[in-house]
């Protein structure tokens, strides 16, 4: 054990402190880490995009022999010419750089948005929606192990009222007044309980992240504690 001799670990520790210093206030160290971080991550993302997406998903499909060294398995497959479409759409998208061709980039954008909208239309209904409806179909009186359950019954009533009032809260075409207003008010109260539960539940996870950082400082860098 003992303090690390690895220059990279020292860099990591320096950056960790630089970022932490932001808690006190904005300062040149933070600003340096921030700008370094932006440059490195933007370049990282681009390189990964090229090597992990563009090469295997586009170039290897259009002209497989090109990738014979890096992706031997893909290079023997026949070329798939349908990939000319993303090639063309991608180039269209880059037309934004020219003031005259900017309108062509909208075609690519239209393809992106249309495709996602079409899949959202069906995906959401299937994955979440119907399941939530089914789970909300519950009996008023809860019977557990053949006998009446008081807690279960209260819980069922609250679930029913919770979903009911929550939906009322999200009504847009009716003024929230009178009984309707009361239901809507109950709805927002129950929503707040949910948000509180979410808040409290996340705290632990966040603290464990901080503990992880401390382990890096005291373990990997200073070598005071063992990991």
């Amino acid at each position: 054990m003992g303090i690390s001799g690895d220059i990279w670990v020292w860099i990591g520790a320096f950056l960790t402190f630089s970022i932490m210093s932001f808690l006190y206030k904005d300062n040149p160290f933070y600003k340096f880490a921030e700008h370094l971080f932006v440059g490195v991550s933007a370049a990282y993302w681009m390189c990964m995009g090229i090597w992990q997406t563009l090469v295997p998903n586009l170039i290897a499909k259009l002209h497989p022999p090109v990738v014979s060294e890096i992706l031997p398995a893909a290079s023997t497959k026949p070329a798939e010419y349908s990939y000319i479409i993303p090639l063309v759409l991608g180039i269209m998208f880059l037309m934004r750089l020219s003031p005259k061709g900017a309108w062509i980039s909208r075609w690519a954008l239209a393809f992106i948005v249309g495709t996602t909208a079409g899949s959202y239309l069906t995906r959401y209904l299937r994955s979440d929606f119907l399941g939530q409806i089914q789970y909300s179909i519950i009996p008023l009186i809860s019977i557990e192990d053949g006998s009446f359950s008081f807690v279960g019954t209260i819980s069922n009533i609250i679930i029913f009222l919770g979903v009911f009032c929550g939906l009322i809260y999200f009504f847009f075409s009716k003024e929230h007044k009178g009984t309707f207003g009361v239901a809507s008010k109950v709805g927002i109260y129950i929503l707040m309980i949910t948000f509180g539960a979410g808040f409290g539940y996340t705290v632990m996870a966040r603290i464990s992240l901080l503990v992880g950082r401390m382990q890096f400082i005291f373990g990997d860098w200073l070598g005071i504690i063992s990991r």
Partner: peptide, 13 residues
């Protein structure tokens, strides 16, 4: 119970 109920209302909406 209450958490799940409100979450359902949000998800449905």
């Amino acid at each position: 119970v209450p958490n799940l109920a409100a979450k359902r209302a949000i998800i449905m909406g």
